[in-house]
Write a protein that binds this DNA or RNA. Sequence first.
DNA 1: CTGAAAGCGCTTACAG
DNA 2: CTGAAAGCGCTTACAG
Lengths: 362, 362
Amino acid sequence: MTDASRERAVGRRRPRQSDIARVAGVSQAAVSLILRGTPSGMALARETRQRVLDAAEELGYVPDPVATRLASARNAMLGLYTFSTTFPTDVAHSYYPVLAGVEEEAAAQGQDLILFTGSARAAARAQDPAAVRRVRVADGCLFFGRHVPEEPIRRLVEDGFPFVYIGRRDEPGVPYVGADYVPASAQVVARLVAAGHRKIRYLREHDQAPASADREEGVLKGAREAGLDTRGLVAPTDGADADALLGGWLAEGVTAVVVEQTDTGAALAGLGAAVGRAGLDCPGDLSLAVLGAATGTRGRAPGGGAAFSGFDVPMREMGRDAVRLLLELIAGSPGAATRRLLPCEPVEGGTIAAPRPPKKHT
Amino acid sequence: MTDASRERAVGRRRPRQSDIARVAGVSQAAVSLILRGTPSGMALARETRQRVLDAAEELGYVPDPVATRLASARNAMLGLYTFSTTFPTDVAHSYYPVLAGVEEEAAAQGQDLILFTGSARAAARAQDPAAVRRVRVADGCLFFGRHVPEEPIRRLVEDGFPFVYIGRRDEPGVPYVGADYVPASAQVVARLVAAGHRKIRYLREHDQAPASADREEGVLKGAREAGLDTRGLVAPTDGADADALLGGWLAEGVTAVVVEQTDTGAALAGLGAAVGRAGLDCPGDLSLAVLGAATGTRGRAPGGGAAFSGFDVPMREMGRDAVRLLLELIAGSPGAATRRLLPCEPVEGGTIAAPRPPKKHT
DNA sequence: CTGAAAGCGCTTACAG
DNA sequence: CTGAAAGCGCTTACAG
């Protein structure tokens, strides 16, 4: 068989190890050993190795990740499963920087990413274990999203499949990388108090997620530490009732509002609009603070060009660190804790000022 | 061996078809047939099938996706190779909707996406053929990006690897899904002419990409068809010299400017700023048209709140169609043409008006 | 130092 | 109608 006819015989089909073996005149197993650079592979005759390497190059060989994985080795592929579309229609979607961080670190670590298209449909009937189960084609998987099917995840835990949540989770034993909202939120309240505010309100969305629970906990903690009255402090909203809420608060003498910023941005958008309609100046008439905008995607205060005061969520870093943790889990050697909370950077911003009328400082 | 001890022997390990086979007293292959509900599976004795189904249920069997994919010779994984980071830092990056379309269609077709991260960067700084070759782990691959290494791609063509470009390409034989810029651009000129403009300029970026070439071709075509003088019509810019260009044009009596919108948005941004600095009203003093903003991410005209007149690039649809075409290629049965141009939807917008002073219409 | 064999968990022809 | 066999493309012991 000539080289030419041999190549033709291989045809359109992807080259595999046995093709290389035939060309190089060695066994298929030897090809595997040599290509992977294992000790036993390196021990083979230098000239043999070169022949194999050349043949692989010439044929354009690339290992089949599925076969590799089945034969129980590593893929160098990390899964990314978002419980919603990965590329949301809303371009400014708040969790985007997380994905950028994931991609960045994966690239740095030489890992490719498999996007498990959580077919909007699958999310709806998300209890379908098969949908989640296919993440096994990767060495490990990152999960991301507020609404998470519990049952399929539990199975993954049982099977010992390595995965990491992006965002804190309540379920015991589940590794995650989240943001440390409690102290960050408490500190925002402390700043308001330091500026002279005593009548504060916290506007949060109607949403049950660990991130929301943590922010509220932090706000309450901050209020208590400052000796503030926490009755009526927390006000859930969907954004539509902002005018009424704002009106009531002004009448009560509220001078500062803390707002939760989440995916939808509904609470902040609603309040911002209400402030505008009421013709209020921020921070002149009312101080505002926002809990958790993504770094670099912060909004602007109503009317002014000032950035919101509050803190940033280290989304990019969360993505990066989640990749690192996942890789540690895959290697079987989690270096540090497997449940991590990253600090949120305070943002000075320009929406906090002393309350009007200015209180005389003692 | 009792049933109990057998079950214990199976232990923590996930149940597989051979376990079911043992319990139900049939062959492993029969289990596969029955579980998959194939014709041959359905043909088996009703009672036998029930026994297998029961055993599967009892053991909590779920098929291993890795093995399934290996055996069925399809990975159900499509590559997505972007010649830059997939998740760009700039959230408003213009090609984002394409990715959304890709994800959407992939999900609908039950395909997962492999993001080639590390390799992308390596390819960029090395023209490293090995980097691009890695895409062969997928069943096929989508390529996307302006700056594309040619050599590795040629290699893929030779090997018969299925792939599709998103965006028109000049290389013969390369399948693509692009936008039909020529007629869309010509039509924009026609609209300007219909509004009474005779002195028009086309501002394009310094960039050699098929998309840019097509737009220019369309503008020239439109101008010729309207009997306009095409000398001096086209002006390349990097955005920095906008003031000078604008000044010159006004002196010449130019009443309308067509601008190319690309990734960077430099041309449009530069001109918009210049118009603002000159204190001009748009479209009162100058009509503007933009060639190719992504649907839903259009900018706003300087000063006013009006959307730019021009056309939309059907980015989302390009992404979707590229997935469809790729799947056809993988199946070996391209239904329609393998080089497709999708129509661009005209955008009425609010930046085209009759030139001032109004010309008397004959 | 080298090669042949078994196995990962499935699917799919192909004999009885 | 049913079952045993081969094969998907790899890895990893294990003989020579």
